[in-house]
Design a protein around this nucleic acid. Structure first.
Lengths: 138, 138
DNA sequence: ATTATCTTTGTATTGATTTCAAATCTATAA
DNA sequence: TTATAGATTTGAAATCAATACAAAGATAAT
């Protein structure tokens, strides 16, 4: 399968050994760019991989984050979210329905890391919140 | 006590009825600007208020956030954090020790909310992460 | 003083995440 | 091929922050 090969290669780029489980998780991330939770990934893959364990999904995402292949988001206070798009962009969470959306039209300078004498800053997360139109109009 | 009166007045400004518990929590927040967790607040007040319930601390902070007297932070994936400083500023979390620090020297424009057709954006949280000097040098 | 309302409390429950040891898989050398 | 070491996966149990909820207590108005 084409997608499988793509996720394979992507994993290799980050020095991640592509096991069946890891490839399936990465393939899911690449096809579903919805900032999924562990549970969503597990529930989506479980039918076609009945032996998959949720612990494996936790382990796998931890590894992906450690290797820099995906970013973990803390925007949602209920669950950890994961983003396969590691480019500089912000996120919006609808406080009503919980959906998370990308916000790309943010000035690049916003993502510049400030220099600080007390801390070595190496990452920034920009999280907007409010209500999405769908929730607003219902 | 002076601090008690101050927190009293502060609560009134946000239309929060100042009960004994609410005043104690707000007083703690004003004297300890360390972005405490629910547990930290509870453990700090518990000795002098033996009947205090942790549920009350949860209820109280929920109310404070709802009324706009404090901001809740999602920067820490382990616990909710609360900040009595509601002015526009960013935060830094040390991934080693977990401490959270204010970052004030961020350009004000960074806190401007983008206009978006799909969402009504009404808040932004800017979270930096890395390692603090204390952790780096030990 | 009585009643209605608001607030606090404690217990029980939920649910995400972690821990951990056993089982399974993979790669390589003998 | 077979043996073996190392890496990965699995499932069960434990942890712990957060929530739900109903009873108890406090407050304010009549």
């Amino acid at each position: 399968m084409n997608q499988t090969i793509e996720s394979h290669n992507y994993l290799r780029q980050f020095a991640i050994k592509p096991s069946v489980q890891r490839t399936a998780v990465m393939e899911y991330m690449m096809l579903n760019r919805t900032h999924p939770t562990i549970d969503e990934i597990y529930l989506a893959l479980s039918p076609s991989m009945p032996t998959l364990s949720k612990t494996t999904v936790y382990n796998t995402l931890d590894l992906f984050v450690e290797k820099g292949a995906v970013k973990s988001l803390v925007i949602d206070d209920k669950n950890a979210r994961y983003d396969v798009d590691i480019s500089a962009h912000a996120h919006f969470i609808c406080k009503s329905c919980g959906a998370i959306h990308d916000i790309f039209d943010v000035k690049p300078s916003v993502f510049q890391l400030p220099v600080n004498k007390k801390f070595a800053i190496d990452a920034v997360e920009i999280s907007y919140s409010g209500t999405c139109n769908q929730c607003k109009c219902s």
